[in-house]
Design a protein around this nucleic acid. Structure first.
Length: 421
RNA sequence: GUGAGUGUAGCCCAGUGGUUAAGGCGCCAGGUUGUGGCCCUGGUGAGCGUGGGUUCAAAUCCCACCACUCACCCCA
C-alpha cells in the first residue's frame, strides 16, 4: 500500500474549509494593501538558495531537497519563497515598474527534516514582499500586515518579536565584537557547544539563538546588535518603532532574534504564538533583505517581506477552536425510481446546473431511502424525487430537507421554483 | 541527526500466552412493497506494521527493521 511520503500529507475534503478560509483572508489582506499575486516554480536552480542563504544556515546545510535532473542540472525544491520572488523580479525586469513593487505568494515550500506538529517536509507558505525602497515605513507596513492577517483569522494569542541586525557596514563590526565576547568567555568557561564552535567561525550571529543552557548564559551577557548599529541603521530602527507606535502596534524587543537566513539586514521580526498544546514555533517571520537582489546580480535594491506557515496557522485555529465557515454544499439532490425517471433526473440535473443551481444526481439505482440518506449526508437543502407517478403527471416532488415538508410541482417549473426560494 | 512513545478492520479502539480477535463510528440491507436525520435488527470489514525467534500454543514474550506521533536542534 502506498502512502504519502514522510512529512507530506493529503488534505481531505473535510479539511479544505480551513485552507480556503486562510487563503481567502490572505488574498483579501493583500488586496487591501495593494500587493499583487506572483507565482513562481516549485523548482529552482539550487544555487539560488545556496548563494543567497549561504552556508551555516540550517536550511541550506541540512534541509534542502536537491537533485539532478536528466540534463544534469542541480535543482532544488524551493525551501523558502523570498529568493524566488527576487529572482522573478530581476528576470522580468520588475525594477522598471514604479518602486516599491508589492507582491505576494501562496505556495508549497520544502524542507527535509523530521516531521512533527506544525513542521512538515512540504508545507504551504503565504508571504508578501515589498521590493525597491528602504523606507522604514515599509517595514512597518509589512509588520502591521502580518499582525492584521493573524487578527483577521481570529487569532489573538501572539506576540511580535522585533530586532535590528544592522547592515553591510555595521554588522561585520558587531560580528567581531560578538566573536571576541564568545572567545573570551569560552576560554574561561569553555562551555560552548559543538554547534556554536562552528557558528563562531561561520555564522557568529547565530550564536545568539542557541538554546543550549551554557551557550545561553554567554548569549545573555553578549553585546546587543542594537547597541552597535551604524547611525543610519539606528535611525531606521528608531523610525520603524515610531511608526509602529503611531499605529498602536505593540511588540517585544528580542535581542537574540537573528533569523535563520543569511540575507537579512536591519529589521528582523517573528510572530510567536502564545502558549499552546504544541511547540510548533513561529507562526511567521520576516524582515528586511537589502542586499539580496544585489547578490543575485541586480542593482542595489532594498526590500522587506514576511512569510507565514499555513499549517501552523490552521493548527492554531483548531487549538483555539475558532469556527470556520463551511465549504458550500450542493443545493439539490435528485433522487429517482425506475429507468424512465432516471432519464428525467439526469436531464433535470443538467438543466439546473445550466441555470447555476449546484446539483447532485443519484446514480446506481438504489432504494429511495438510500438516495435520501445520501442527500442528508451531503447536507443539500432540497431533494427532488422523481418516480413513476411523477413521470406520468410530468411533475416532481420537492422536499425541503430541513423541515421535511414537500410538495408536488410541475417538472418544467423546478428550476424556477428553486431560484425563487 | 538525537531522544521518547505508539503501531489491532476506512476511523476510534478492547484484548498482556490457550476456543472461530470484542465493541463503537462508518458503509450496505431490512423494519416502512416510493422517502433522510432518531430507534431497532442483520450484514460488510482486521488475523493483529514487517521479518525472525521463544513456546505444545503469541496480537499478547524477545530481537531486528519499518512506519507514525511527539520532542530536541532550527524554523513557516
Amino acid at each position: 500500500m502506498y502512502k504519502a511520503p514522510r512529512g507530506t500529507s493529503d488534505i481531505l475534503p473535510a479539511e479544505q474549509a480551513y485552507w480556503k478560509y486562510v487563503e481567502e483572508k490572505a488574498i483579501s489582506l493583500c488586496q487591501l494593501y495593494g500587493y499583487q499575486p506572483l507565482s513562481t516554480p516549485l523548482l529552482e536552480d539550487s544555487q539560488l538558495f545556496t548563494r543567497t542563504s549561504a552556508s551555516g544556515t540550517d536550511i541550506v546545510d541540512k534541509e534542502m531537497y536537491i537533485f539532478k535532473d536528466r540534463g544534469g542540472h542541480e535543482l532544488a525544491l524551493r525551501p523558502e519563497g523570498t529568493a524566488p520572488v527576487c529572482r522573478a523580479y530581476l528576470q522580468h525586469g520588475l525594477f522598471s515598474l514604479p518602486q516599491p513593487v508589492r507582491l505576494y505568494y501562496i505556495g508549497a515550500t520544502f524542507r527535509y527534516e523530521r516531521p512533527q506538529a506544525g513542521r512538515y517536509r512540504q508545507h504551504q507558505q503565504f508571504g508578501f514582499e515589498a521590493i525597491g525602497d528602504a523606507d522604514s515605513a515599509l517595514d512597518a507596513e509589512v509588520i502591521v500586515m502580518a499582525r492584521n492577517f493573524l487578527l483577521s483569522l481570529g487569532l489573538i494569542q501572539f506576540t511580535i518579536q522585533l530586532n535590528s541586525i544592522g547592515c553591510k557596514l555595521c554588522q561585520p563590526r558587531y560580528r567581531e565584537i560578538l566573536k571576541k565576547h564568545y572567545t573570551a568567555l569560552n576560554s574561561i568557561q569553555g562551555h560552548l557547544c559543538s554547534d556554536c564552535q562552528t557558528r563562531l567561525e561561520r555564522n557568529p550571529l547565530r550564536l545568539l539563538d542557541c538554546k543550549n543552557a551554557s551557550c545561553q548564559e554567554m548569549a545573555d551577557t553578549a553585546p546587543k546588535t542594537v547597541d552597535f548599529l551604524c547611525p543610519e541603521c539606528r535611525a531606521h530602527f528608531q523610525s520603524l518603532q515610531e511608526y509602529l507606535s503611531i499605529l498602536g502596534i505593540s511588540f517585544q524587543f528580542n535581542h537574540r532574534l537573528v533569523r535563520g537566513l543569511d540575507y537579512y539586514t536591519r529589521t528582523v521580526f517573528e510572530i510567536q504564538p502564545g502558549k499552546g498544546t504544541t511547540q510548533q514555533g513561529a507562526l511567521g517571520g520576516g524582515g528586511r533583505y537589502d542586499n539580496l537582489i544585489e547578490e543575485l546580480g541586480g542593482e542595489f535594491t532594498p526590500a522587506v517581506g514576511f512569510a507565514a506557515g499555513m499549517e501552523r496557522l490552521i493548527l492554531k485555529l483548531k487549538e483555539e477552536k475558532i469556527s470556520i465557515p463551511p465549504l458550500p454544499e450542493p443545493v439539490v439532490f435528485i433522487a429517482y425510481l425506475g429507468s424512465e425517471a432516471k432519464n428525467e433526473a439526469i436531464k433535470l440535473a443538467f438543466q439546473l446546473r445550466q441555470v447555476g443551481i449546484a446539483t447532485i444526481v443519484a446514480v446506481g439505482d438504489k432504494s429511495l431511502k438510500a438516495q435520501l440518506k445520501q442527500a442528508d449526508a451531503r447536507g443539500t437543502s432540497y431533494a427532488i424525487i422523481i418516480g413513476k407517478e411523477e413521470i406520468e403527471s410530468q411533475s416532481a416532488i420537492l422536499r425541503d430537507m430541513k423541515s421535511g415538508e414537500q410538495k408536488i410541482i410541475p417538472l418544467a417549473k423546478v428550476a424556477e421554483t428553486l431560484i425563487s426560494r
